[in-house]
Write a protein that binds this DNA or RNA. Structure first.
Lengths: 217, 217
DNA sequence: GTATATTTTTAGATTAGTCTAAAAAATAAT
DNA sequence: ATTATTTTTTAGACTAATCTAAAAATATAC
């Protein structure tokens, strides 16, 4: 049984390790959790005792199979709740992250199964991110941020990073939503800004923005 | 801003004081919160400092107007979530209390307003209890437990106490749900059991049960 | 109306999560 | 390869919520 705080740490470790494929350093985690390295070291010991991560002093943490499964359940809950808020309650996609951060900690397996059913077993959340199924299986879609694309690329927006509400508001304004057509027209060397076509509308975006729009790789 | 624990204490105080109409003693509260009197004294000091209750040493606590309003908001959330679980997700009424105990602490005024709208502004929850509106206004229906009724009484079940899941399962089995017709046929002096008619079906119920079925007074 | 019993409060500890400041280990620099 | 820098860990302290044991206040008994 993990506490709310432990769940949040584990989720951050899952994301920072790219789903368990690399080790996470203390300072990285401190940054992600908006806390101090000393606090992270303490928490790492607890999570390690609960066997959801392995930990070697000074070398960072790795998530275990059990930890991965627990992290995926939290992510499943988060993304199902976001879908509920947008599809059923009429929230805008830029308003749901904070609330879902709370709802993801509600502990009731039955509730989540019922919610999943009620939503019609959605495969992705409103930001385009895949929703793990009830067994914790997640379909990882290799995603590339737009700032790494070459001129001439054509495709569809797969997802957008969902952390910042102001960014999402802006993306919504320029029409950058999952599923929408996108084409790279040009790149500006000196500031890494880009000229792109979103659903046939020409827009100029800064690097801060292009990094947060993801296409299928 | 109240913590989760503080909200739970305040809710218990609201209920034990019958909506603020009488003082609540330390031991009563300790019993209700399944904790020790010493812990209650500590918490009382905190709630008192936050001005949601007033407190005189050795004489118990009274809820303030502000405290009442905050308690009613928690109750509103609890009852809206219960309604959601039953009406939308298909939970049975005896399964929702525990989950609603968690959901009632989600902090997002917008979420609650949207949920209320989604549910069609329900007036009562699945157990027949009134749902406070967005201003915290609650329509108090004077409710009398069946064990206090005289032989011959006829009326409708207004609500059932929703704390114990086993009791609710039993009530469901004998058809004792809010809105159902009820008539008192007889009372047994030595064990306070009763013979009643529920929707025209004759049943014998113990005092433990009759105390938990409420009719309009 | 003093003694006894009950209720409530205080005192001192404990656990989870956090912090600052200092020590220890690892990495980088010359 | 020794010094300097960065990263990480330890040590000690703080807050919220809890506990046990003991003291204080109130209520009850005869």
């Amino acid at each position: 049984m993990l506490s709310l705080t432990e769940e949040n740490y584990l989720k951050a470790i899952y994301h920072l390790s790219d789903g368990g494929s690399k080790a996470v350093l203390t300072n990285e985690l401190a940054e992600a959790m908006s806390t101090k390295a000393a606090s992270v070291t303490d928490m790492i010991k607890k999570l390690s005792a609960k066997e959801v991560i392995t930990y070697e002093k000074y070398y960072g943490v790795n998530i275990t199979a059990q930890g991965k499964s627990e992290a995926l359940m939290v992510i499943r809950k988060h993304r199902l709740w976001e879908t509920f808020l947008v599809d059923k309650l009429g929230f805008a996609w830029d308003e749901v992250h904070e609330v879902a951060e709370q709802l993801e900690h509600i502990n009731s397996p039955r509730l989540i199964e019922k919610l999943d059913e009620f939503l019609g077993y959605p495969k992705v959340d409103p930001h385009g991110d895949p929703i793990p199924d009830h067994k914790g299986k997640i379909k990882i879609i290799p995603q590339v941020p737009v700032d790494q694309l070459a001129i001439g690329y054509q495709g569809k927006i797969a997802a957008v990073k969902d952390s910042d509400s102001n960014l999402l508001k802006y993306l919504d304004k320029i029409g950058a939503r999952p599923g929408v057509k996108i084409k790279v027209l040009g790149k500006e060397e000196y500031d890494d800004s880009m000229e792109i076509l979103i659903d046939d509308h020409r827009v100029f975006i800064s690097k801060a923005v292009s990094q947060n729009i993801l296409v299928v790789g």
